[in-house]
Computed example of a mutant assay.
Amino acid sequence: MRLITLALATLLLLIQYPLWLGKGGWLRVRELEGQLSVAQEKNAALKSRNAKLESEVRDLKDGTGAVEERARYELSMLKQNEIFVQILGKDQPKPQGAVTPAPAVQPASPATAAPAKPKS
């Protein structure tokens, strides 16, 4: 009787091996499900990126607004007869090549001022 019990227990373990550790076992399935969820998240992010790129391509093909915006911000281009004004905060450094305004000339005092010539 002991031999039969030992044989049945061994058979039970042999049957359980493929279920837990085999090619289609529970552990392998759980690992594959984890890989699947990671791949699905990556695909969703790439689909979002592709949709943004597709809309940008459509804008570049159809309208001039996107081209103009890119030229302004990426290439710092201006339209003809357009003036560029940049407002800096107190804590921002001045860009290189910035033009500093000349100091204001104070008017002469009346005592040192030359007399005005009468109009003729």
Results as ranks from 00 to 15, higher is better:
V29E: 15
V29R: 15
E33N: 06
E33Y: 08
G34E: 10
Q35D: 11
L36S: 13
S37N: 14
S37F: 11
V38Q: 12
A39M: 03
Q40D: 05
Q40C: 00
E41W: 06
E41N: 09
K42C: 08
K42E: 10
K42T: 12
K42W: 09
N43E: 12
A44M: 05
L46D: 05
L46P: 09
K47S: 12
S48A: 13
S48P: 01
S48V: 04
S48D: 12
S48R: 11
R49M: 06
N50R: 08
A51T: 07
K52T: 06
K52M: 07
L53D: 00
L53R: 04
E54A: 10
E54P: 03
E54I: 10
S55T: 09
E56G: 02
V57C: 04
R58N: 03
L60F: 03
K61M: 03
K61L: 08
D62Y: 08
D62R: 10
G63S: 15
T64Q: 07
T64W: 04
G65W: 00
G65H: 02
A66P: 00
V67I: 14
V67H: 12
E68A: 09
E68C: 03
E68S: 09
A71P: 02
R72E: 00
Y73W: 12
E74I: 02
E74Q: 06
L75E: 15
L75G: 01
M77A: 11
M77C: 05
K79Q: 08
Q80D: 05
Q80P: 02
N81D: 12
F84P: 03
I87L: 11
I87K: 08
I87W: 11
I87G: 05
L88D: 01
G89Y: 06
